[in-house]
Lab assay of single mutants.
Amino acid sequence: HNLTITQGKLFFHYNPKLCLSEIHKMEEVSGTKGRQERNDIALKTNGDQASCENELLKFSYIRTSFDKILLRWEPYWPPDFRDLLGFMLFYKEAPYQNVTEFDGQDACGSNSWTVVDIDPPLRSNDPKSQNHPGWLMRGLKPWTQYAIFVKTLVTFSDERRTYGAKSDIIYVQTDATNPSVPLDPISVSNSSSQIILKWKPPSDPNGNITHYLVFWERQAEDSELFELDYCLKGLKLPSRTWSPPFESEDSQKHNQSEYEDSAGECCSCPKTDSQILKELEESSFRKTFEDYLHNVVFVPRKTSSGTGAEDPRPSRKRRSLGDVGNVTVAVPTVAAFPNTSSTSVPTSPEEHRPFEKVVNKESLVISGLRHFTGYRIELQACNQDTPEERCSVAAYVSARTMPEAKADDIVGPVTHEIFENNVVHLMWQEPKEPNGLIVLYEVSYRRYGDEELHLCVSRKHFALERGCRLRGLSPGNYSVRIRATSLAGNGSWTEPTYFYVTDYLDVPSNIA
């Protein structure tokens, strides 16, 4: 807008934040220059609390790290170098490059900038070799853009010569660093050979998330399962459950009422301010606690030095998902009996873990797994792929695949051998790939016309006998059925096997 004052003059007093240069501009645009008398524009009460600059400061050096910015700028000295009290560095987070010096300023003089007072450097006698002032900004957020400017702080001049310097606002972004852990990993099994893994992005990506790394490792069953005799009275049979499938998407929606109208769909109840505040506090606490764990609990591995020492970490090797089922080394339970199943799973520490690289999504279907087997899954978020990966501390989750139908069934015939004193040795093959492992066998036998009897055969007993022995049988026709019990439950009964026990007292003698 054009402003013209045809008559009258300007009068400025007691404006401590208004620089004289701005008042002189007002004289020019209003056409009143030359009308004012000496005392109409006070030299001592206008701009006496402001830094009124008329020179431009330029930054000469900028260096960044993930949490620091090192700045240096060209030296500046007023005509009387004693008038320079120091520099004021202003900075704040700036997602967009549209910041002005006066953003967030209120009537009390406060604003949204963080201000650092910096002492002037030592003055050199040689004007050509003056030290460049600077400042190291610490405690910054990774991968965050900051708006920065600097200006001088000078003393009051009796001659009211307006001098000083100020830089333009520059924008500097800190470097990326390792992201925080992925949030809320959930693993479920939808079949006997697959596990579905879902997660949420890290709360602090500290860069642009480029991919996720998912490692999985087959877990050995508890050692007590191999040692305890679950045929003993009072000892509860062990059981394991597989990871249940995901709930429906509708039930997972946030901010939804727990109660549904019987007449149909209901609208979600909005969260109160107290609920939102509580969630923010919980989120802040979780982030602080995660940072504490990362800094205190997890110790970084030592990389190899120039002395030739090897990095103890196993090298990563990509495998196809079809090879995942046989990740671990199978060892027989008892070496003397080769027909026992290889369900003991000690994992070799030198073995390469299978892994998958996930790009542009937060889910993965891990296939080719062994049925009813526990897996430990390790999830890392990465925001750099080359020249070397920059990934987060791992988040861990466990899951067990679903049982395989008929995996616990005894394959092959049940054979028998009759000894003296009416002892019958029953023999059968253990299931080759049971659900988890076989903890015991149930032997059901009966003599024709009598009630059915049951015998429990422990895992250890089966390994020693290759089956079991029935003792003290009365003469007669017998039928026997056997079924295995694994961590997933009972298998199917075998087809009945028949044998006849004679009275050993009636056996004919070869003595003449």
Score class of each variant (00 low, 15 high):
residue 313 R to I: 10
residue 233 K to E: 13
residue 391 C to N: 01
residue 335 A to P: 12
residue 468 C to G: 02
residue 343 T to S: 08
residue 211 H to D: 01
residue 385 D to Y: 08
residue 305 S to K: 11
residue 422 N to T: 06
residue 435 N to G: 02
residue 262 S to R: 09
residue 427 M to L: 09
residue 250 D to H: 08
residue 345 V to K: 09
residue 274 S to Y: 08
residue 351 E to I: 14
residue 258 E to T: 11
residue 497 T to A: 08
residue 243 S to E: 03
residue 251 S to Y: 06
residue 231 C to H: 03
residue 331 V to S: 13
residue 352 H to T: 11
residue 379 L to G: 00
residue 410 I to S: 05
residue 458 S to I: 07
residue 419 F to V: 07
residue 346 P to S: 09
residue 362 E to S: 08
residue 458 S to A: 09
residue 389 E to P: 11
residue 271 K to T: 04
residue 374 G to D: 03
residue 347 T to H: 08
residue 454 H to I: 06
residue 269 C to T: 09
residue 342 S to L: 15
residue 219 Q to H: 13
residue 311 D to R: 06
residue 459 R to V: 13
residue 275 Q to D: 04
residue 465 E to N: 11
residue 350 E to L: 12
residue 454 H to A: 05
residue 461 H to K: 12
residue 393 V to Q: 01
residue 424 V to Y: 13
residue 439 V to T: 09
residue 328 T to Y: 10
residue 475 P to V: 08
residue 427 M to P: 05
residue 430 E to F: 10
residue 312 P to N: 09
residue 357 K to H: 05
residue 359 V to E: 13
residue 346 P to L: 11
residue 297 V to G: 02
residue 501 V to S: 02
residue 241 T to G: 14
residue 435 N to I: 00
residue 500 Y to S: 09
residue 278 K to H: 01
residue 218 R to W: 14
residue 317 K to V: 13
residue 221 E to N: 08
residue 383 N to G: 07
residue 394 A to V: 07
residue 389 E to C: 13
residue 388 E to F: 11
residue 335 A to D: 15
residue 385 D to V: 06
residue 229 D to P: 00
residue 280 L to A: 15
residue 434 P to Y: 04
residue 381 A to L: 02
residue 414 V to L: 07
residue 364 L to V: 10
residue 276 I to D: 02
residue 299 V to R: 14
residue 215 F to W: 00
residue 496 P to R: 14
residue 320 S to H: 10
residue 343 T to G: 11
residue 319 R to T: 13
residue 249 E to M: 03
residue 386 T to R: 12
residue 359 V to P: 10
residue 380 Q to W: 08
residue 288 T to K: 08
residue 320 S to K: 14
residue 444 S to V: 14
residue 482 I to L: 10
residue 291 D to G: 05
residue 476 G to C: 00
residue 356 E to C: 12
residue 372 F to N: 03
residue 355 F to G: 11
residue 206 N to W: 05
residue 322 G to I: 13
residue 281 E to A: 11
residue 475 P to T: 11
residue 294 H to M: 03
residue 503 D to T: 05
residue 265 E to K: 07
residue 416 H to C: 11
residue 250 D to Q: 10
residue 266 C to Q: 06
residue 240 R to V: 13
residue 345 V to I: 08
residue 372 F to I: 02
residue 312 P to G: 13
residue 367 S to Y: 10
residue 241 T to V: 15
residue 209 I to S: 10
residue 287 K to I: 03
residue 239 S to D: 15
residue 444 S to Q: 14
residue 510 N to I: 11
residue 438 I to L: 09
residue 451 E to P: 15
residue 283 S to E: 05
residue 275 Q to N: 05
residue 344 S to G: 06
residue 433 E to Q: 11
residue 332 P to D: 09
residue 318 R to C: 07
residue 409 D to P: 02
residue 505 L to A: 07
residue 309 A to N: 11
residue 432 K to I: 13
residue 326 N to A: 10
residue 443 V to Y: 01
residue 377 I to T: 02
residue 374 G to S: 07
residue 509 S to T: 10
residue 358 V to W: 02
residue 390 R to A: 05
residue 245 P to K: 06
residue 386 T to L: 15
residue 226 F to H: 13
residue 420 E to N: 15
residue 510 N to S: 09
residue 493 W to C: 00
residue 381 A to P: 08
residue 333 T to S: 04
residue 358 V to A: 14
residue 380 Q to K: 04
residue 256 Q to D: 13
residue 252 Q to T: 11
residue 395 A to H: 14
residue 389 E to H: 09
residue 324 V to S: 08
residue 390 R to S: 13
residue 456 C to P: 08
residue 438 I to G: 01
residue 506 D to F: 15
residue 492 S to Y: 05
residue 450 D to P: 07
residue 380 Q to S: 09
residue 227 E to G: 10
residue 440 L to D: 02
residue 359 V to A: 14
residue 400 R to L: 10
residue 487 L to D: 02
residue 402 M to C: 12
residue 486 S to T: 14
residue 399 A to Y: 06
residue 223 S to K: 14
residue 318 R to V: 14
residue 362 E to F: 13
residue 340 T to C: 09
residue 398 S to M: 04
residue 354 P to M: 14
residue 315 S to M: 10
residue 438 I to H: 01
residue 480 V to K: 04
residue 245 P to G: 08
residue 343 T to L: 11
residue 281 E to C: 04
residue 402 M to A: 15
residue 275 Q to F: 06
residue 315 S to V: 07
residue 453 L to E: 15
residue 257 S to F: 08
residue 386 T to K: 07
residue 375 Y to T: 06
residue 455 L to A: 12
residue 510 N to P: 10
residue 374 G to W: 06
residue 415 T to N: 01
residue 491 G to H: 05
residue 272 T to D: 02
residue 318 R to K: 12
residue 238 P to M: 05
residue 390 R to E: 01
residue 460 K to W: 14
residue 462 F to C: 02
residue 308 G to W: 05
residue 492 S to H: 12
residue 487 L to C: 09
residue 278 K to V: 07
residue 413 P to T: 03
residue 287 K to W: 08
residue 204 D to W: 15
residue 205 P to D: 15
residue 330 A to K: 14
residue 289 F to W: 06
residue 276 I to S: 04
residue 362 E to A: 12
residue 243 S to T: 08
residue 461 H to T: 11
residue 260 E to S: 11
residue 308 G to S: 13
residue 223 S to R: 12
residue 248 S to V: 06
residue 408 D to S: 06
residue 440 L to C: 06
residue 325 G to P: 13
residue 483 R to T: 02
residue 354 P to K: 08
residue 300 P to T: 07
residue 205 P to F: 14
residue 474 S to W: 14
residue 356 E to R: 09
residue 438 I to D: 02
residue 363 S to L: 13
residue 415 T to P: 01
residue 262 S to F: 11
residue 424 V to I: 02
residue 296 V to F: 04
residue 478 Y to D: 00
residue 469 R to P: 03
residue 285 F to G: 04
residue 213 L to R: 10
residue 397 V to Q: 03
residue 351 E to M: 11
residue 405 A to H: 13
residue 376 R to W: 14
residue 379 L to T: 05
residue 316 R to Q: 09
residue 468 C to W: 09
residue 499 F to I: 15
residue 498 Y to G: 13
residue 354 P to E: 09
residue 407 A to Y: 04
residue 419 F to W: 15
residue 467 G to N: 01
residue 301 R to H: 04
residue 485 T to F: 11
residue 220 A to E: 12
residue 403 P to V: 06
residue 375 Y to W: 07
residue 476 G to K: 02
residue 239 S to M: 11
residue 220 A to P: 09
residue 319 R to I: 15
residue 464 L to M: 10
residue 304 S to N: 15
residue 457 V to Y: 08
residue 360 N to Y: 10
residue 273 D to Y: 14
residue 367 S to D: 08
residue 243 S to M: 08
residue 317 K to C: 09
residue 504 Y to P: 10
residue 478 Y to A: 00
residue 472 G to S: 09
residue 321 L to G: 11
residue 211 H to Q: 07
residue 445 Y to W: 09
residue 367 S to C: 14
residue 445 Y to S: 05
residue 265 E to W: 10
residue 290 E to T: 03
residue 311 D to Y: 13
residue 226 F to C: 07
residue 443 V to E: 00
residue 414 V to W: 02
residue 362 E to Y: 10
residue 329 V to M: 12
residue 457 V to R: 06
residue 472 G to H: 04
residue 234 G to L: 06
residue 297 V to F: 03
residue 224 E to G: 15
residue 246 F to L: 10
residue 352 H to C: 04
residue 319 R to E: 14
residue 306 G to S: 10
residue 258 E to P: 14
residue 233 K to R: 15
residue 448 Y to C: 12
residue 403 P to Y: 08
residue 306 G to T: 14
residue 435 N to H: 04
residue 449 G to C: 06
residue 320 S to R: 12
residue 331 V to F: 07
residue 454 H to V: 07
residue 455 L to I: 13
residue 236 K to V: 02
residue 323 D to H: 15
residue 359 V to G: 10
residue 405 A to L: 06
residue 509 S to W: 13
residue 500 Y to D: 06
residue 314 P to S: 06
residue 293 L to Q: 01
residue 254 H to K: 15
residue 354 P to G: 14
residue 290 E to M: 02
residue 337 F to T: 11
residue 378 E to P: 00
residue 495 E to C: 13
residue 263 A to T: 06
residue 497 T to K: 06
residue 482 I to K: 04
residue 250 D to T: 11
residue 225 L to A: 04
residue 348 S to N: 14
residue 231 C to V: 05
residue 234 G to E: 13
residue 421 N to M: 11
residue 456 C to K: 04
residue 462 F to T: 05
residue 406 K to D: 10
residue 290 E to S: 03
residue 229 D to M: 06
residue 449 G to K: 09
residue 347 T to C: 07
residue 279 E to V: 04
residue 296 V to L: 03
residue 262 S to D: 14
residue 367 S to F: 06
residue 327 V to C: 15
residue 219 Q to A: 12
residue 383 N to S: 04
residue 388 E to N: 05
residue 267 C to W: 01
residue 476 G to H: 00
residue 406 K to Q: 12
residue 340 T to M: 13
residue 311 D to F: 14
